[in-house]
Amino acid sequence: MAIINLVGVALIGLIVWWFWLYKPTQVKAGGDEPITIVVENGVYLPAQIQLPAGKAITLRFLRKDESPCAEVVQFPGLELAKSLAVDKSTTVEIPPLEAGEYDFHCQMQMYRGKLVVG
């Protein structure tokens, strides 16, 4: 019985870490080079991208995760969505944006990322 309780507590700790304590990797966009985002193991890598206001950027999503949840990336604040093929790069053109934060995620919001525009 104690083992079951320990496993339960460990799972609760993992869930708390995953949804509230996990800090995503971050990259700063500076040049005109596309930024590659790898979709793998339930996350976007990098998951947070800093970019200057008023400058268009190209994101290149490389989906390695075969999970159906990873099939689409959505940018709700931009009214933009793209299907992602497994083991292929998919280009997403982000128009020049005003300063602020713009979330992107899968259709179930399990994979999450953010564009930080400043």
Rank of each mutant, 00 (worst) to 15 (best):
K82H: 13
C69A: 13
P46G: 12
K82E: 07
P76I: 10
P46K: 04
P52V: 10
P46D: 04
V43W: 03
A47R: 09
A53M: 05
P76Q: 03
G54L: 09
S83A: 15
P68L: 14
L59P: 01
Y44G: 05
K82M: 13
Q74F: 01
E66H: 02
P52R: 06
A53L: 12
G42C: 06
A56G: 14
V43K: 09
A81F: 15
Q74W: 00
L59K: 00
E71M: 04
L51S: 13
Q50L: 13
L45Y: 03
S67C: 11
T58V: 15
L59F: 02
K64N: 11
L80E: 05
S83L: 14
Q74M: 06
V43F: 15
L62K: 09
P76T: 11
A70T: 08
I57C: 09
A47C: 13
V43R: 06
L78D: 08
P46L: 11
L84P: 13
P76Y: 05
I57N: 01
A53K: 03
I49K: 05
L59R: 00
C69K: 11
K64S: 04
P76R: 03
K55M: 12
L78V: 15
L80K: 14
A53D: 07
A81Y: 11
C69S: 12
A81V: 14
Q48W: 01
P76H: 03
K55R: 09
V72A: 04
L62Y: 11
A56N: 13
E66F: 11
G54T: 10
A56H: 02
Q48L: 11
A70K: 01
L78F: 08
L62E: 04
G42L: 07
L80H: 06
P52E: 06
E66Y: 06
L80A: 10
A56Q: 02
L59E: 00
E71K: 05
L51P: 09
G42H: 03
R60Q: 09
L45N: 12
V72Q: 01
Q74R: 08
V43Q: 10
A47P: 15
L45M: 02
L59C: 08
S67I: 08
Q48E: 11
E71R: 02
A81D: 09
T58P: 05
A70L: 08
R63H: 03
P46Q: 08
S83D: 15
S83V: 14
L62S: 04
